[in-house]
Design a protein around this nucleic acid. Structure first.
Length: 196
DNA sequence: CCCGTGATTTAT
DNA sequence: TAAATCACGGGG
């Protein structure tokens, strides 16, 4: 187990905060598409009503959420969108962090090609379905270890600007829990934090 | 605001 | 087998 991998064996809430500022990299045909992660959500497993593993459920869809820290959990939803999660914890825990937004810094031209509806840079990766479309991520990477090609995450020294903790987006359960983390100084957030 | 779109899950 | 749900995005 690489040091990089060990970093994901903490709980989802801890890993979520650490992921802010880390660089998500995708290589397609030898070309690099990348940028720092600026928004994430923690899903805490069996005790979290909003998690796909709530109550310890095991289904074909959520199988990779149980693989342990550092793997990709990818699911397809609303008939058209893929969402990418970083599994954390130990094998069997069923905990993960949803990647919700990235600030595009490399390969913007290729991202625009995939993101037909995007008019400006801020439209490229400012949402969980947007970033998977921009980076060409789908279930072909289901269970992929996020420590190597063609899709990985590493610490490149970028520091998150202003860390804000707020509510998760688009869920119908556990709506008040503050498990979404974002860098409020970024222009690439999917949705502003709640007022409160 | 509303709607597409289809896999997955849950209810019967 | 049928119905409901859905960690969303785009267009008005």
């Amino acid at each position: 187990m690489t040091p990089r991998f060990r970093a994901y064996s903490a709980d989802a809430d801890t890993v979520a905060q650490r992921l802010l500022g880390q660089r998500l990299v995708r290589v397609i045909n030898g070309r690099r598409l990348a940028g720092p992660i600026v928004e994430v959500e923690a899903y805490l497993g069996a005790r979290d009503k909003a998690a796909h593993t709530f109550g310890g459920r095991r289904t074909a869809r959520n199988a990779s959420m149980y693989l342990g820290g550092g793997h990709a959990y990818i699911y397809f939803t609303y008939g058209m969108h893929h969402c990418l999660n970083v599994v954390c914890g130990k094998p069997g825990d069923g905990v993960a962090v949803l990647l919700r937004a990235v600030e595009p810094t490399e390969g913007l031209e290729l991202m625009f090609r995939r993101r037909v509806a995007a008019r400006e840079v801020r439209d490229l990766c400012s949402g969980p379905g947007k970033l998977t479309q921009a980076l060409g991520i789908d279930k072909a990477r289901y269970g992929h270890p996020l420590s190597r090609k063609p899709l990985w995450i590493y610490e490149d020294g970028t520091l998150p600007g202003k860390l804000v903790k707020t509510t998760r987006v688009g869920i119908s359960q556990a709506k008040k829990q503050l498990y979404r983390y974002l860098d409020s100084s970024s222009d690439h957030i999917s949705k502003p934090p709640d007022g409160n």
